[in-house]
Design a binder for these strands. Structure first.
Lengths: 200, 200
DNA sequence: TACCTTTTGAGAGTTACTATCAAAAGGTAG
DNA sequence: CTACCTTTTGATAGTAACTCTCAAAAGGTA
């Protein structure tokens, strides 16, 4: 259920921590599903996971982070850096997303889907997700700058990164309107459209 | 109830409300400037503005809204709708922003600047601002759809709107890095770049 | 003046989050 | 196994952003 945990569980301590973390998230998501995000208190989550509220906050700095702490971005960025340098940035990004999805186990993808759904439907979470998106964009801009041997603060590069992120957000909003939509497929289409020069 | 809708502040009541609202915002911004956003409590603001905390929350649903409730977007959208229908959406948007700035009094512009600075420097505010940005984009997409006689849910249109918003955000982040920058000039340059097809 | 509506403040309550600190559990050396 | 050190945990107390309710005050009207 909780997908990508540490690939090598070393000490007993590490394993227990991972289990606690997974338990908290699992019970949190269940409660959110059953009674809604804001109607669920941290105290309830802690009780369900059989830890103290203090411990909850040790594992997740905020209630939002139970939903938002997500490794998809990180994986995608890793994939991006592995793309051939000659590739157009937008094309490289599309490839990265495709690869990240292809390699992830199905239950991981299903969890991403649920987190996505939740994020889109709770305004509080959506705001923070957008913020994370923008941060990823800054990272993307840096990576693109490195690939093209230009300054990371280059206006053209940052504007491009901004446009990419904007398309991503627009896709998120479209997916929010239609919960049955395949977010990742839409994302690919949106980036393809951007690659084509945004024809109307 | 006095029948007709009143777009102008007529009675004493309306004027007092406007004054209270302005006082709260003014004292809040001063306190934020003096001691920082998060170090300032709603209680302090209420006391400075000589109202009760209850009254503060009647005027602004959250502490964040003191900073974020902003009429620039609304004005810009109005301007946008007044642009000739034949104009390219991005060009029309650039013109709208230019006009909105040209018509606003200098002190209004200065306040926008300060709000902008604050918004960029406080993560909490930034998140919410991004959200507002995206909402404006949805509005923009609708307007563009009307102009071109297409479906408001048209993928190409929403993707274009997303890209525009993304460029806007990227400009905001660049301005955050360099507080001396002229946000509006950067915004115009970014949109011009997008209009040109995002050449690297 | 009398009356009705809107606005306000006071008070109590909820919840996310922070800080501290002693107890418990995990891990290690003798 | 014992003694010891480090990490993790839970209890407690506190802060601050809200929310709700209700009666008093102020604005407006007949």
């Amino acid at each position: 259920m909780s997908g990508a945990d540490d690939p090598r569980p070393c000490g007993l301590r590490e394993r227990k921590k991972a289990r606690t973390r997974a338990a908290i998230r699992q019970h949190a998501l269940r409660l959110f599903r059953e009674q809604g995000y804001s109607a669920t208190t941290v105290e309830q989550i802690a009780e369900a996971a059989e830890v103290s509220p203090s411990t909850f906050f040790r594992y997740f700095p905020t209630k939002e982070d139970v939903v938002l702490q997500d490794d998809f971005d990180i994986i995608a960025v890793e994939k991006f850096e592995a793309q051939p340098a000659a590739m157009h940035p937008v094309a490289a990004l599309r490839a990265s997303i495709r690869e990240a999805l292809a390699e992830a186990p199905p239950d991981q993808i299903e969890q991403w889907r649920e987190l996505n759904r939740l994020t889109l439907s709770v305004p509080e979470l959506r705001s923070r997700a957008l913020d994370a998106f923008v941060e990823s964009a800054a990272l993307l801009a840096d990576v693109v700058a490195k690939r093209t041997g230009r300054n990371p603060t280059d206006f053209a590069i940052r504007t491009l990164a901004g446009a990419v992120v904007g398309v991503g957000m627009s896709v998120m909003m479209m997916a929010a309107d239609d919960p049955l939509a395949d977010v990742m497929a839409l994302m690919d289409a949106g980036l393809a459209h951007l690659e084509a020069g945004l024809p109307l």
